[in-house]
Amino acid sequence: MATLLADKYEARKAEVNERFEQLRANEEKLNRIFAEIYNMVGEVPIEVEDKYVSVARIFDTADEIPESYKGNKYVRTKRDEITSLMSYAVGCMFGRYSLDVDGLVLADQGDTLANYVAKMPDANNITFMPDEDNVLPICDDEYFEDDIVGRFVEFVRVVYGAETLEENLRFIADALGGKGTPRQVIRVYFLKDFFSDHCQTYKKRPIYWLFDSGKKNGFKALVYMHRYQPDLLARVRTDYVFAQQERYRTQIGYIDDALASAEKGERVKLEKQRKKFVDQLEETAKFEEKLHHLADQMIAIDLDDGVKVNYAKFQDVLAKIK
């Protein structure tokens, strides 16, 4: 049955904010009890300030947060709720979570899709299947079948229904902020902000790793460290980077053909597009060399060593943790 994400958000906000007020009331009741026990009524504060209530409180926007809540680390906004949903969706894409069972699913070193299927109550009727090869490309357009934006849109369709898909995507995009169509806004978030938000959530110890060619966004892709296999880098290189480079060459070729007969106004636009593709191609060429060097080593990791140690092994091709 189709569901509006806006309705789900409002229901969650009401539940969370009611819990906030209930905790405040409980704490004030305890303060009053202890003040009476120790004969300190009127000498100690009974009321609990907003910033000291230690459970979540949701506001639609940051501008709506009163000054009295400043300093409360549990305060959240609609954007925070939506980015948490997007993080959960990525977890489902990798098989860390599932729509069919509670809790963690794939969380052991070297887990595969076969391990995921084996943990399902009905292997023939899985609601949302994780990515097969543990690589979710993030490009500035939908070049790959398992493009992260395409997979996220499918996740929203599966969870909330096809009938409300476009309205739900608009709600998500409005919460994120930005210009363009809902899919464009969502793509920009995955390109620019998802990894930094993920690093913040996991205290600079990300479990989803971002392959990143550089500032030109020539190539980016997320992988899940628990599903890492020594041949992963080789697969990223051959199945994704090479394919992306070929697309850039093709686009440059199309533009060169168009420039031969383009008028002045159109020529400016085409030359700008050409420069973008040339820059991305050059960036991915340098990235591919680094990736090739590491891929040939078939590097193994040990989750017991921790994220920091393992991430450093691939620092030449992974995004910097800030």
Score class of each variant (00 low, 15 high):
202 Y>V: 05
186 I>K: 01
267 R>N: 07
130 P>D: 04
12 R>T: 15
312 A>H: 05
210 L>E: 13
225 M>T: 10
23 L>D: 01
140 D>H: 13
148 I>E: 08
234 A>Y: 05
211 F>A: 14
160 Y>D: 03
212 D>C: 10
89 A>M: 14
183 R>F: 00
308 K>Y: 04
283 E>C: 05
186 I>V: 10
4 L>E: 02
168 N>A: 03
15 E>Q: 09
97 Y>D: 13
192 K>T: 15
54 S>A: 09
62 A>F: 01
125 N>K: 15
106 L>W: 09
84 S>R: 06
170 R>D: 08
25 A>K: 10
38 Y>K: 11
46 I>E: 09
108 D>P: 01
11 A>M: 12
45 P>N: 03
263 E>V: 09
216 K>D: 12
75 V>N: 00
184 Q>P: 01
156 V>H: 00
192 K>I: 00
89 A>S: 13
154 E>V: 07
50 D>W: 01
162 A>M: 03
299 I>M: 01
24 R>S: 07
213 S>Q: 05
203 K>S: 11
10 E>W: 08
11 A>Q: 11
197 D>P: 05
98 S>Y: 03
186 I>S: 01
258 A>F: 05
154 E>A: 08
93 M>N: 11
24 R>K: 14
238 T>Y: 04
181 T>W: 00
245 Q>I: 05
256 D>Q: 12
154 E>S: 08
263 E>H: 12
198 H>A: 09
44 V>C: 03
177 G>E: 06
224 Y>D: 10
131 D>A: 11
86 M>E: 07
315 Q>D: 15
294 L>C: 06
307 V>N: 12
154 E>Y: 08
274 R>L: 03
29 K>S: 03
282 E>C: 04
86 M>P: 02
40 M>F: 12
88 Y>I: 10
132 E>R: 15
205 R>T: 07
51 K>W: 05
319 A>W: 10
170 R>G: 01
270 L>G: 04
